[in-house]
Design a protein around this nucleic acid. Structure first.
Lengths: 245, 245
DNA sequence: GAGTGGTCTAGACCACACG
DNA sequence: GTGTGGTCTAGACCACTCA
């Protein structure tokens, strides 16, 4: 059985990356050069590069070049009291966040259902990008009732974390409920914001935050960079850590 | 801004599938026919088909044809007492399982660590395929200590579920601990066994089963069909259901 | 053997980055 | 403008399925 040519090229490039012949962050030879090196057509070289880009081993930038990219794997812990900042800090990773957009909309059905609102009730729709050591790892789209959280747009922009924003509304503690998770390919906009390949998988996590009384206070859909993050669930020994920021 | 041709083709095909013009399971026109219909080269048509195949909307079979494939989304619930069969049955889905392979090996480091064994201790390595309504949804690679579970190969082959097999060793109840989850592309062998596209993402879930005394009894790495399954975690209101088969 | 999808080369043109 | 990657057509040949 003969291996396909593009797979041979992919494996040879992967070996060179693993062996450090192409250092992390270094620029690869251009496509015509690789074509000559492997005695292949551009199609085969591009297919090999594409495969490695999806795996996260290469990062392709139009007009600039192709670069070695070996992103770290982050373990994101999900429990009843998951907090973004604390979660990363416990691993020695510097958390960060950037506001991307905020608007007030009529609640779509799934949001209304999650928050226990009438369909069409007005909610904040906030999009933020989460960073780990400066690298994008998540896009969080979150929804909050405008009645319960007036001026959330301003407050969230000032607050360092969602936990802190909640505190300004008198919510000192909250729990995570109804976490669901699935995988799909990134759409082009997501891929750009996460700095990953268009065809790379992302992990989509939806959850509802509830107060200690069980009342829902927030609903969010977060898109995570697929091969930079793994999740961990400790259903058994949830340490019940106190609220944190 | 002009859309790329292959994306236009992809979207038109997706629309036709959604509209039922191409019925579920029906065969698509051949590539040359689609080239003519869309006035495009074969490259563009194949790219569009490839994108839809990764999304799970089409299933491509070499030498036979391309078919409409609209797999159902299964919600798999993960909690302390997750059981494969019960999980699916609660959704009205018929669970199934097929033995693929069994061997006894020296425990790799991660397995030894999870099970609390000395490195190199002998363990069962069992590979099974999980089915939902007859469709493959998972490949479960599980490890058990040979001392604690003699003859597990035979017993597991007879037992309808892992829960039942455990029972024959006097384990009436067990809990799930240390669940981690990440996404990556399927490798060719996995893709074939799961009946999905080679480039499709899979979800990899690793977990340790522990007895009520906290002692680890089994460790497994399960590869789930990426867009046929979503996971749900109920960290808050785990109903603590009794043991089930 | 006929028909299907899988891979490959060759060559052209387009879009983006950067000096 | 020059060089990079992105897309496209054209045409060839290979591998697999099935009558």
């Amino acid at each position: 059985m003969q291996r396909d040519h593009w797979q041979t090229i992919r494996d040879r490039l992967a070996d060179d990356i693993a062996a450090g012949i192409f250092a992390a962050g270094a620029q690869l030879p251009t496509e015509p050069e690789l074509c000559a090196r492997f005695s292949a057509g551009r199609h085969s070289v591009r297919r090999a590069i594409g495969a490695l880009a999806i795996e996260g081993k290469l990062r392709v930038e139009q007009g600039r070049g192709t670069f070695v990219d070996t992103p770290p794997l982050i373990t994101y812990r999900i429990g009843r009291r998951t907090r973004f900042r604390q979660n990363l800090q416990e691993q020695g990773i510097k958390p960060g966040g950037e506001h991307i957009s905020h608007e007030i909309i009529a609640a779509p059905p799934r949001v209304a259902a999650a928050l226990g609102l009438d369909q069409g009730a007005r909610v904040h729709r906030t999009l933020r990008r989460g960073l780990a050591d400066g690298l994008p790892i998540s896009l969080a789209l979150s929804f909050h009732c405008t009645q319960r959280f007036p001026d959330l747009g301003d407050i969230r922009a000032q607050a360092e974390s969602l936990t802190e924003a909640y505190r300004r509304y008198g919510i000192d503690d909250y729990l995570r409920k109804d976490t669901t998770l699935f995988s799909r390919r990134a759409d082009p906009g997501e891929a750009k914001l996460l700095g990953q390949h268009r065809d790379h998988p992302v992990l989509v996590v939806t959850k509802t935050d509830v107060g200690l009384d069980g009342q829902p206070i927030g609903y969010s859909e977060t898109v995570w960079a697929g091969d930079r993050v793994q999740f961990r669930f400790d259903a058994l020994d949830d340490p019940d850590r106190g609220p944190a920021g």
